[in-house]
Amino acid sequence: MTEQHKDYTGAKLGMWLFLFTELILFGGLFILYGVYLNRYPQEFITGGGELNVWFGGGNTLVLLTSSLTVAMSISALQRGNRSLCVKLLVATIAMALLFLVNKYFEWSAKIHHGIYPGAPSLQEGPPGESVFFGLYYLTTGLHGLHVLIGAGILTWVMFLVRSGKVNGDDFVTLENAGLYWHLVDLIWIFLFPLYYLVL
């Protein structure tokens, strides 16, 4: 009885449930953000002003575009165009890495300026700023970890597509990997204005 074909709806349902858990995982950090923004509005504005909008905005472009390419890769595979699908996935993975490289430079610049959790300059400054940067590092760090995991999953699926194990008739693995990648994008859509554009 094991030769039954895959239950597509079931697989996607499971994936969505998993995405909800990710959403609520970040939700915990959003609760803290909301509460501390409410308590320290001025310090949050000062803190946000110190973040570089160009890094944040650039990474937004990168992630939005990578979301487009991964969505297109699914359409490509559904239409049977395997090589286009692989190319789009490679582009997505490249953008994921670009995002991480950007993040690396952004973080190192901040750390270089003495802004990191537990840094002396933060402990001497107003309490709200230390909370802002604590949250900033935790949230973007956790998000960065998800980008890394997402890139890993997409690489794995890319090889499956190339070998034909994931194909136009059996592509739920690609769809689920895509869903995961879009979630990473979704979280960033909220992170960007909340941290880089507070006013």
């Binding site: 979301s67 969505a71 895509g178 879009h182 979704l186 859509i189 909220f190």
Partner: peptide, 17 residues
């Protein structure tokens, strides 16, 4: 900011996802 982010995420969820 949150309103615009919600519109953006609705687009991603509805179409991309």
């Amino acid at each position: 900011a949150l309103g615009i982010a919600s519109v953006k995420s609705s687009l991603v969820i509805a179409v991309f996802m």
